[in-house]
């Protein structure tokens, strides 16, 4: 998206341009307001929040709320802070992203370069699986995870996220590989190269951009998931569920500054990815919405 330059033929007058800039400014403030409020108030002592203005900068700057959110805030019944849940999320996200991406790449490769009868139907089935409302699988999934002994465990959550991540990762690689000349693959076959050799030597070297897109998409989705974590996590909760527990806890004084620090901690990994690789993030969003 950012690669495309601005070259519209439309000409606008001075008054129109003023109005356009004002509107854009208003929306900029609208989008930034929640982030600004969260950051500023996470750096204030609680008394300044309850007694003061949410828009004003801290009079006394403090990182105490951050320390509390990370290591001592009450999550559920335990005063552990968000740290163990952050670790849960990492332990869940990394393998789930890796496995679903590898499977997606192999599937995309098969579906475009080794086509066989019925491959269109298989792709259709994989694609449709991306768009089901997960409520439809919650009940049987709870039963199956229980039977497998994976309920309330990291491997259980990894399994769930891999299963429901394959559709999207396959979609990405399939659309990407579809535009790669099949003749090259044919030529390599005639030279005697096998399935994995071609994948390793020809497909993988060109897969950089789509792999970044796929990893970012899966990472963002899995990190931000709440439904599966809340349904199947049990004691092993991911970050989003822990944050919700922290914010919704009804006991004691509401420590808003700690809540904000926690919310930013939960948002930090995906925000960092967005800041570092925003271009790929947008590409993933678009490819997930329209064809690749």
């Amino acid at each position: 998206m950012s690669a495309i330059t601005q070259d519209t033929a439309i000409r606008t007058g001075r008054v129109t341009r003023m109005l356009i800039y004002v509107t854009l400014l208003v929306f900029t403030l609208f989008y930034l307001l929640p982030l600004f409020v969260m950051v500023v108030n996470s750096l204030k002592p609680l008394s300044e929040i309850t007694g003061g203005n949410m828009m004003s900068l801290p009079k006394t700057w403090t990182i105490e709320p951050w320390r509390q959110a990370w290591s001592s805030a009450q999550i559920g019944v335990e005063p552990t802070g968000l740290k163990p849940y952050f670790i849960n999320s990492i332990l869940m996200v990394v393998p789930a992203v890796a496995i679903s991406t590898v499977l997606g790449a192999l599937n995309g490769y098969v579906l475009t370069k080794w086509s066989f009868r019925g491959d269109k139907i298989i792709f259709g089935l994989l694609l449709l699986s991306c768009f089901i409302p997960f409520q439809i699988v919650l009940i049987p999934m709870a039963t199956v995870l229980g039977k497998l002994g994976l309920a309330g465990s990291i491997p259980g959550l990894i399994l769930v996220h891999v299963v429901y991540g394959i559709g999207f990762s396959t979609l990405y690689y399939r659309n990407y590989y579809a535009s790669f000349p099949t003749e090259l693959v044919r030529a390599a076959m005639i030279d005697g190269a096998g399935f994995f050799r071609i994948f390793w030597r020809i497909m993988l070297p060109i897969s950089g951009p789509i792999t970044v897109v796929c990893i970012i998409w899966q990472f963002t989705n899995i990190w931000n998931d709440f439904l599966f974590g809340a349904s199947f996590g049990g004691q092993i909760q991911p970050m989003t569920v822990a944050l919700n527990n922290l914010v919704q806890s009804s006991t004691g004084v509401k420590e808003y500054n700690v809540h904000f620090a926690g919310a930013i901690l939960a948002a930090l990994p995906t925000l960092l990815v967005y800041i570092v690789a925003g271009r790929y993030f947008v590409r993933g969003l678009m490819a997930g919405s329209v064809k690749g």
Binding site: P34, M38, N224, F226, N244, V247, A267, L271, G278, F281
Partner: peptide, 21 residues
Amino acid sequence: PIFLYPMALSFIVTGTAWKWL
């Protein structure tokens, strides 16, 4: 990027921020 960054956040984070606002 400013218009688009909320898309990278979890709905839980969005909900927490707006609930307060």
